[in-house]
Design a protein around this nucleic acid. Structure first.
Length: 490
RNA sequence: CGGGAUGUAGCGCAGCCCGGUUAGCGCGCCACGUUCGGGACGUGGAAGUCGCGAGUUCGAAUCUCGCCAUCCCGACCA
């Protein structure tokens, strides 16, 4: 059957690709490395956007929009920033096409060369800080708390749907503050906002921490990250928040006059999450039957499938189904009554399972007689017959339970695949199998690099709040103050 | 960007090595009928610039060269 998925065990990577295609989330486009996000996939992104957007606004941020194009000269202002992004920038050099005089087709008009080439934004720090320079003069203009929802382009060599594409959608927050402490607090606050969202809505447990120097954002003084473990044992960096210090303020000469009348550079943060979270969502929860979506992010909470032979039966069932639909909708749920007569019930069951709809209600003639509904939950695939009477209360409670169950399942998986390791042989062995490893590290980039070369594992983060514990570096044997989180990452 | 593989109907593939009539198969699609509580069945039908461009040849899906795309493995990354 065309709709069947490759199993995770057989080929995890193929399972992922199949799932993205068959759950109708996205497909490859005519442009290398760029994907078409299909309506169902985009609906998930819209859910993410609306929840996060509210969280941003609740913490005092406002939305704005900055240009897609960045003058090339802006880019070189912050040395580390250019260095980090230069290798993956798309560049606009001309602004006009013309008919090819030698024949058919169209060519770039060489007369229409841009005086200054434009970079398609890989991130917006430079154009934003060039703008902030004009917006900020006094401590009264601070803090400046702005977010933008946008697309960015990073010319990646190898791409994978949602996880790494040449163009992706994201939000990027860019804030300016009067003091180091305030900017630090902002970066940490937004990290917490993200983790709240990812754990409580996406039901993915994460580990928060600092990035090591080599994994730090280009131009940041410190990068905070949160890392999730996927079902194949690989880590996925789900989002980052950066304390930028005064690097961009200095590069773009953004100063303010303090209360004391002193001129000072502004302190900055930036933070972002991307459509990659959809990839995380897929790989954290889904199974060999398809997508498993936590109710809080599912575009459709409940699907009602009628089971009937004659059109008259459908009519009778529809009355009940629409009643239930309205009832549940009044409780804030999104309900789809799948009354298409072009597909059989079994087909619909499989289809909605593939798409991860958390709860399915089936209503047939038998149910009409008994006043019941068959309720099936996507996370466990369990079915039970419930009374039609209190379905309006049972379904919301069931959705809560599903949300809870998906999270605890992911948490249990992570627990079972997190290891505290002290021997290099064990370390290598675990890295082949996959999982999180807590191990000692001597704190040097050289060791980090060597470990990566030998095992492909990287330091995902230096976890917050982990107890200081003296030990010996897993690789070099040199003294270490605390354990850090290692994993092979996406 | 390096190494490997693949590209034939919407999808999955056979045919290619050894060139030769109307290029097949499964699924899907359309019509009609029987079905409908876990991806139905029958009958009939539509659908292909054989990835693109050159070349060799009387003749190219098949041979040669170039390009493009996708997948897997490496280096890079949200």
């Amino acid at each position: 059957m065309a709709k069947e998925l490759t199993s995770r065990e057989e080929n995890y990577s193929k399972w992922y690709n199949d799932l993205v295609a068959k759950a109708d989330l996205a497909e490859n486009s005519a442009v290398r490395g760029c994907m078409v996000i299909k309506p169902y996939g985009y609906a998930i992104w819209e859910k993410m956007q609306s929840i996060l957007d509210k969280m941003f606004k609740d913490t005092g941020h406002v939305n704005a929009y900055f240009p897609l194009f960045i003058p090339k000269s802006f880019f070189s202002r912050e040395a580390k920033h250019v260095e980090g992004f230069a290798k993956e920038c798309a560049v606009v050099t001309h602004y006009r096409l013309k008919n090819d005089p030698d024949g058919k087709g169209i060519i770039v008009d060489e007369d229409a060369k841009l005086e200054e080439e434009l970079i398609v934004r890989p991130t917006s720090e430079t154009i934003i800080w060039d703008t902030y320079k004009r917006w900020i003069q006094s401590y009264r203009d601070l803090p400046l708390l702005i977010n933008q929802w946008a697309n960015v382009v990073r010319w990646e060599m190898r791409t994978r749907m949602f996880l790494r594409t040449a163009e992706f959608l994201w939000q990027e927050g860019h804030t300016a503050h009067a003091t180091r402490e305030e900017a630090q607090a902002e970066a940490l606050q937004m990290l917490d906002v993200y983790c709240d969202f990812v754990e409580n809505h996406l039901a993915i447990p994460v580990i928060k921490g600092d990035k090591t120097e080599s994994e730090r954002f280009a131009g940041a003084e410190n990068t905070y990250t949160f890392e999730a473990l996927m079902q194949d044992g690989k880590a996925l960096q789900t989002g980052t928040s950066h304390f930028l210090g005064q690097n961009f303020a200095k590069a773009f000469d953004v100063k303010f006059t303090s209360k004391e009348g002193k001129e000072e550079y502004v302190w900055a943060t930036s933070w972002g999450v991307t459509t990659r979270m959809i990839g995380a969502l897929i790989m954290a929860h889904s199974d060999d039957n398809g997508l498993v979506l936590p109710p809080k992010i599912a575009p459709i909470h409940v699907v009602i499938v009628p089971i009937y032979k004659q059109p008259e039966q459908l009519e009778q069932i529809s009355v009940k189904a629409l009643e239930i639909k309205k009832n549940l909708e009044n409780k804030g749920l999104t309900v789809k009554f799948d009354n298409r007569d072009t597909h059989k019930p079994g087909w619909k069951f499989a289809e909605h399972e593939l798409k991860g709809v958390p709860v399915r209600l089936a209503i047939g003639p038998r149910d009409l007689e008994n006043g019941t509904v068959e309720v099936a939950r996507r996370d466990t695939l369990e079915k039970q017959v419930m009374s039609m009477e209190n379905i309006g209360d049972l379904v919301p409670a069931l959705l809560d339970e599903i949300q809870e169950n998906i999270f605890s399942k992911a948490k249990k998986f992570r627990q079972e695949h997190t290891y505290t390791i002290d021997s290099w042989d064990d370390f290598k062995k675990i890295m082949k199998e996959g999982g999180f490893v807590m191990a000692h590290w001597d704190g040097t980039t050289e060791t980090e690099q060597k470990i990566k070369e030998e095992t492909k594992a990287t330091i995902r983060c230096i976890p917050f709040g982990s107890t200081k514990e003296k030990g010996k570096c897993i690789y070099s044997g040199k003294p270490s103050e605390q354990r850090v989180l290692f994993a092979v990452a996406y």
